[in-house]
Design a protein around this nucleic acid. Structure first.
Lengths: 332, 332
DNA sequence: CTCTAGTATCGCAAAAATTGATAGTAGGCT
DNA sequence: AGCCTACTATCAATTTTTGCGATACTAGAG
């Protein structure tokens, strides 16, 4: 009669809002309020200080929250373990992905997952890279999909994909018709770059610097979508991970040209918390991701592979992931 | 909507019976059955094998049981911790005591506890010494009250009382009228002893042996009550912890004579599991026990104290402990 | 001081948990 | 083997809990 109440309390505490916490459980705000009241009455202690507007936890509430979070986690783990006896895969896999890892990168895995494990649920949320790490860190997501993964003490990273960087230009651009180009050909070119706070910007800068190439940065954006739009209107060219422009290439609005004389990939990684034991569902999803990565690309992008890069591998529109995956614009 | 179910399952599993598990929760057997069914349906796994008559856990059930036991324990701990913020003492203290630690030894503590912490519950169960240890070991009791406590790896023991051993005889016995006697005076005496499996028997034997006294053991019983009855009908005398005969002494059916020339106490201890964090209620009860021990007796039984030993300190009949404390006969 | 976003409270509707009665089973006994 | 007994599962009815919508209340912003 009240494990659910504890869950609601935790969600309310986490979001610092009754309404939002309730929404997260598909409950009315009224219910959430009553649930917390119930716990408070039971414990004889106020858990939440409502006199502050973004509500605050009382000291007791903090203790209860921390304890219950771990408890719920552990309970999930136990249920999962028991279900393994019958190879039953249930529960929700919460994935936090950077904007540029769109469904395109995961579509196959998502679909296979939904088919193979109909009792499990998948929730994918697209976020800023920092937020992805944050959510994984705070146990708000089971898995994070990030670029240039940087394992730290608390976070483990599994290699996932290596996306070749290609030159992206409008079809009419002077470089667009070549089968491949050397990096030096970009010297002085008008260029649309990422903002400097993003790892990919720093990596690209290093790459160009090593090749002693200086581009003329005319714009900086923090997401790929905007960069592509800027290229389309002729503001300049950009170096982007090839899978992120498949769509535009297949619709002939942009052209991708492989870089011939220098290798550079954007590595994608799957991150998760180190000491958290992953549920079967999470493990299965990782397996699928690793197995069905659209482009393992162990080799490299070489001159003459232009066609291969230019081909969008699949035009099916993504079969929507189950659960509500906040559909935001999909930058970086 | 289901923490209670988990509790019921654990109780059912522990008692290996739906009916008994249900009873332990004041539920109908029907409910218990449905509760377990619910969990099984939820997990998609049978937890209990009903085809065996004392029911058995399936492998999955075992895992679930172990996991949930720890979980519930932890949850209790969290709730307890939170309630401490307001010095609220709740929950149940489960005490397992050996037969001979009757209410007489605890009455004051029990009463004070009930008054001071009305929201807490106390359940005392009287058992065979081995069962006391077993219950503490298996987390079926929070505290054990035992004699000759022997702390082991898993069990911690706190000293509680030192009960002076006295000679107990019928009023008409030749030794009964003396203010005190020497141990050697018992040589050759008809004697009612404990059975050899009890620690107290072995300790008494050692004591007598060291004094080079040999008694004539005419009967052996595993509990004090029966020994007292045997003494009353004149079968012999016995060496017993003095508090265990207060009742008979005050009603003049037996006489206790202190031993003058040799000190011997039956030590009582409070045992609990080492690594289990005790709830506030348990801690408070321990405090009461230690503070209100009826006879701390730091010194010793000396000649001339006969009167003191002979006085039953209090004739009030014990105000019954709350919760159902199986009232069994009260041996050892 | 008013306005807004966010909460508590109340009565009612919906969904449970619980029960008692009853049918079904495993294991012991003759 | 077959009955008996002690348990357990199932079902329908009832009681209890939970959830919701409407409405009153409150902290903080402007």
């Amino acid at each position: 009669m009240h494990l659910r109440f504890v869950e609601v309390f935790c969600d309310v505490a986490q979001r610092r809002s009754f309404s939002k916490g309730a929404a997260a459980h598909n409950l009315s705000q009224s219910s959430a309020s009553q649930a917390v009241s119930f716990l408070e009455k039971r414990l004889g202690t106020k858990l939440i200080d409502r006199s502050k507007r973004p509500l605050e936890l009382t000291p007791a509430g903090r203790v209860y929250f921390d304890g219950c979070r771990e408890l719920l986690e552990r309970f999930r783990a136990i249920e999962d373990q028991v279900q393994q006896f019958h190879d039953r895969v249930t529960g929700t896999v919460r994935v936090a992905a950077i904007y540029s890892v769109g469904l395109m990168q995961m579509e196959q895995s998502v679909q296979t997952f939904a088919e193979r494990y109909p009792e499990a649920r998948l929730r994918v949320e697209y976020l800023h890279p920092d937020q992805v790490c944050e959510q994984v860190q705070n146990d708000e997501a089971d898995l994070g999909l990030v670029s240039f993964p940087r394992p730290s003490g608390e976070i483990v990273s599994l290699d996932w994909q290596r996306q070749p960087m290609v030159l992206v230009a409008p079809p009419a651009h002077r470089l667009a018709s070549q089968p491949s180009i050397g990096l030096s050909e970009l010297d002085g070119e008008d260029y649309i770059g990422f903002t400097r706070d993003l790892t990919i910007r720093r990596e690209v800068d290093r790459w160009l610097k090593r090749a002693r190439v200086a581009v003329n940065v005319v714009h900086e954006f923090d997401n790929i979508e905007t960069i592509k739009r800027a290229i389309e209107i002729g503001s300049g060219v950009a170096l982007l991970p090839s899978p992120t422009v498949w769509q535009e290439i297949s619709s002939r609005t942009l052209v991708a040209v492989p870089i011939a004389d220098s290798e550079f990939f954007r590595p994608l990684g799957i991150i998760h918390k180190r000491h958290k034991q992953l549920t079967a569902a999470v493990q299965k999803f990782i397996e699928l991701l690793q197995h069905e990565a659209p482009e393992p690309v162990p080799g490299a992008t070489q001159a003459g592979q232009a066609d291969a890069v230019g081909q969008a591998p699949d035009d099916r529109v993504a079969g929507r992931a189950r659960g509500r995956s906040r559909s935001k614009r999909a930058p970086v």
